[in-house]
């Protein structure tokens, strides 16, 4: 089975601030790491390779430094790392990112299965997987807890829904987004690190894509525009209530109503 896992480098912490004057993120000195959700996708891919053979490639889009997450994935056990990097992708929103990724995936090879983490910790949208699947013209299933079985080009998966789980059968090629805590990701191996020390990370840029039209990528290819970013209003002033129990009980109830934890018509 030929598997491709899409991963992302994210800031090591979400504790970023906005520069009020310029409206730009202050990210200096913030260390980068692999999006933790992606670890479960990598682990699922490696488990499938152990069971059915084949190979596991990893791909990411970002600046040169993003190579670090590809190396980490290789140390975990992936076979090959591919970096999609080009200045033309600057300012991409979800749609432009998904489109560029889908172009990069086509260039990277032919795969039976594409796996993504459920979401990232920085964008937090959980949209890139399904959008990519649409651009690639393949089926997708989100929130997959486990791939149960592969037989020929058929795949049996366990999918999480809000109130139940569903066992689904579908054909490859397809794209799955893997649920958080679906498995226990292995640690990068020191042995592999030593063995793959000089590993070449392949680079793909706009000139390698079949669609080379600059207007389809980056800021220009993005249907959404960020008008401004600003710090959230902090509910800093805490409400303190003292007095008669009767009054406090009522106030408590009002707070629950206001915050929609209970509804009036329920009573």
């Amino acid at each position: 089975m030929e598997i491709l896992v899409c991963i992302k480098q994210v800031p090591g912490t979400t504790a970023v601030e906005v520069d009020e004057e310029t409206g730009v993120l202050k990210r200096d000195g913030v260390e980068a790491k692999m999006n933790p959700f992606d670890l479960f996708a990598i682990e699922q891919a490696l488990l499938l390779r152990e069971k059915y053979g084949g190979k596991v490639d990893v791909i990411t889009m970002g600046p040169g430094q993003a190579e670090a997450v590809l190396r980490e994935a290789v140390w975990m056990g992936a076979d090959r790392g591919i970096l999609i990097s080009d200045r033309s992708f600057a300012g991409s929103d979800v749609a432009a990112t998904s489109y560029a990724l889908s172009q990069g995936v086509r260039k990277a090879g032919t795969y039976d299965l594409i796996l993504c983490g459920k979401q990232t910790t920085d964008g937090d949208t959980a949209q890139v997987g399904p959008e990519m699947a649409e651009f690639l013209g393949i089926e997708h299933i989100a929130n997959v807890e486990m791939v149960l079985e592969a037989e020929g080009n058929e795949l049996t998966v366990l999918e999480n829904q809000e109130n139940c789980q569903r066992q689904l059968k579908l054909f490859m090629p397809c794209l799955l987004t893997i649920e958080k805590d679906a498995n226990t990701p292995r640690l990068p191996s020191y042995k592999r690190k030593m063995k793959t020390g000089g590993l070449e990370i392949e680079r793909i840029g706009l000139s390698d894509f079949s669609d080379k039209d600059r207007r389809h990528y980056g800021l220009e290819g993005s249907p959404t525009q960020v008008e401004r970013i600003f710090p959230p209003e902090r509910n800093a002033s805490c409400q303190k209530y003292e007095g008669e129990p009767e009054k406090l009980g009522n106030l408590f109830y009002q707070v629950l109503l206001e915050k929609k934890f209970v509804s009036e018509n329920k009573v």
Partner: peptide
């Protein structure tokens, strides 16, 4: 969260989560 992005991509339009 599974449906909206797929549909947005079909129309190559924006989606804000």
């Amino acid at each position: 969260r599974s449906l909206a992005p797929r549909a947005a991509a079909r129309f190559q339009t924006g989606l804000t989560a």
